[in-house]
Each structure stands twice: as structure tokens, then as C-alpha cells.
């Protein structure tokens, strides 16, 4: 039985003169956890946006969950994909609280003309409990710290009951403790729900313990892929980032 949930063939994306993706092909099986790393401008975020139809292909094709992306069905496809973007700047005076923000995750599935039921609000409270921010439920969304905001974003994606989970640098711009909490949460969700997960990150420390497969991207190409053990080596990473890197025994990576 074919359990491929994502298939991309020779995909190219460009933003005016800049080519963000060049001939990318990729297959992801159901339940896989794929880490995506690479220097800035490598096309990592663009690859994720191709999968939920936010990025427009200028060449090639993409299928997700059996349907063609960029087709008429894209809006329905998005309802089945949880997407956590990088930390956003939210106006601290915005009159919308955390609970309402998380509930927005299921508005797509709920459809027009329908209001959320009590059971759905209860589900939101349960998810907030799970990600550890139940005490912030009534707080304005713009008052959260970076780490708290990302937990709310993960909760919003979870309430969608997605089949695919896309995370775009969820630990960027937040403190180390919050980074660890977010990565543990992502790992827990993957195991608990056996959810196909694609994670873009610069946090190389925690990747080996989470990923089944690692994609290395550079200048819009998939530059390499394989198991974390085979990819997280000094010579590979130094060439990928164009700068000497060292790998410690604790798989901690740093520029040297």
C-alpha cells in the first residue's frame, strides 16, 4: 500500500527575479518526521509554503494527501494541514485573546455560517492544557512572550486535527528554556498522534532525537538528505553552511 502523503516533482518557485526553489523533488511517507536545515535563503520556508498552497509553483507539481496543490481544492487541503509560522509581531492592544486565537484553527473545518459549539471550546481548553498555557487562555494574544506565542500557535494547529504538521522555525527568537519546551512538545505531538511532521529549524542540537530523516537545503536545492546520523557530520555541515563547524559528542553544533 502506498503511504506517501507528500510528493513534489521538479518544483520551482520564484519571487520576481529571485528563485527560491529550483527543481525540488521529494516524497514523504505517512508518520515520518522530516527535519529541514540549511543557511538563510536556502528555500526551507518556501518548501513548506508549497505544501499548503501559500507558495505558488512556477514549474513542477505537488500532491499532498492525494490532492494536487495549487488546484481548486487547495482551500480544503489547508484545513487538513497544521501550519506554525515563525514568531509573529502582534499588536499588544489587539482585542483578541489566546483562547479565541486557538479556536480560529478549527474555523476552516467548521465552514461558513457555523459557530463553534461548547464541545469545541472544551477541546480548545484541553489543547491549551496540553501545551502548558491553560493559565493564559484569557490573556490578549499580543501580550504573550515569543515562547508562549509559539505554544499558542501549536495549539491552534492541533485544534485543526491536522494530518500533516508543518513547523517553520518554531524556536527562532525565543530563549533556550522555551526552545527546549517547544521541541519536546513537537516530539510529544508527533509520537502521540503519529502525525507526519516537517520541521524547519536552525536548532541542530535536538534534531537527532526527533527526526527520521534530515533534508539539507542550499540555494533552493535539496543539497542532501539522509538519516540525522549521516547528515550531522562536521564535513557535511561545514560545506552546507560554507563555514567550518564542529560537532561535539553531545551532538551540539557550533561555529568554530
Amino acid at each position: 500500500m502506498d503511504d506517501t502523503v507528500i510528493r513534489i516533482e521538479d518544483a520551482a518557485v520564484s519571487y520576481r527575479e529571485d528563485v527560491a526553489l529550483r527543481g525540488v523533488s521529494l516524497e514523504v511517507r505517512r508518520g515520518e518526521f522530516v527535519g529541514i536545515i540549511g543557511p538563510n535563503g536556502a528555500g526551507k520556508t518556501t518548501l513548506l509554503t508549497v505544501l499548503n498552497g501559500l507558495g505558488k509553483l512556477v514549474h513542477g507539481r505537488a500532491w499532498v494527501l492525494g490532492g494536487s496543490v495549487n488546484g481548486r481544492n487547495t482551500i480544503n487541503l489547508r484545513k487538513r494541514i497544521g501550519y506554525v509560522a515563525q514568531v509573529q509581531n502582534i499588536d499588544p492592544r489587539l482585542p483578541i485573546n489566546v483562547r479565541e486565537t486557538v479556536m480560529a484553527g478549527c474555523y476552516g473545518r467548521l465552514g461558513l455560517f457555523r459557530r463553534p459549539k461548547t464541545s469545541q471550546w472544551q477541546a480548545v481548553d484541553n489543547v491549551l492544557q496540553m501545551v502548558g498555557i491553560a493559565h493564559l487562555a484569557r490573556r490578549p494574544i499580543g501580550h504573550l512572550s515569543g515562547g508562549e506565542y509559539q505554544k499558542a500557535a501549536i495549539a491552534r494547529a492541533l485544534i485543526q486535527q491536522p494530518e500533516i504538521f508543518l513547523l517553520d522555525e518554531p524556536t527562532a527568537s525565543i530563549d533556550p528554556q522555551a526552545q527546549r519546551e517547544i521541541m519536546s512538545l513537537v516530539q510529544l505531538i508527533h509520537k502521540e498522534y503519529d502525525m507526519t511532521t516537517l520541521l524547519v529549524t536552525h536548532d541542530l542540537k535536538q534534531l537527532p532525537s526527533i527526526c527520521n530523516r534530515l533534508l539539507l537545503m542550499k540555494e533552493g536545492w535539496i543539497w542532501g538528505q539522509g538519516s540525522p546520523a549521516s547528515m550531522l557530520r562536521e564535513e557535511v555541515l561545514s560545506e552546507l553552511y560554507g563555514s567550518p563547524m564542529s560537532v561535539s559528542t553531545e551532538t551540539t553544533l557550533r561555529y568554530s
Binding site: 509573529q88 489587539l94 480560529a104
Partner: peptide, 23 residues
């Protein structure tokens, strides 16, 4: 009244609203 939840989601974050399948 009819589209309150969609409008609220767009006010909160338009890109996120697109990503969850709201028009």
C-alpha cells in the same frame, strides 16, 4: 454577525487565517 468568526480570524492574522482554510 454572519461572518464574525472569519472576520475575527482575519483581524488576528491574515496569513494564519489563509493557512487554516478560511477564505
Amino acid at each position: 454577525v454572519v461572518f464574525y468568526k472569519e472576520i475575527q480570524a482575519v483581524i488576528c492574522h491574515r496569513d494564519v487565517a489563509v493557512a487554516v482554510g478560511i477564505p
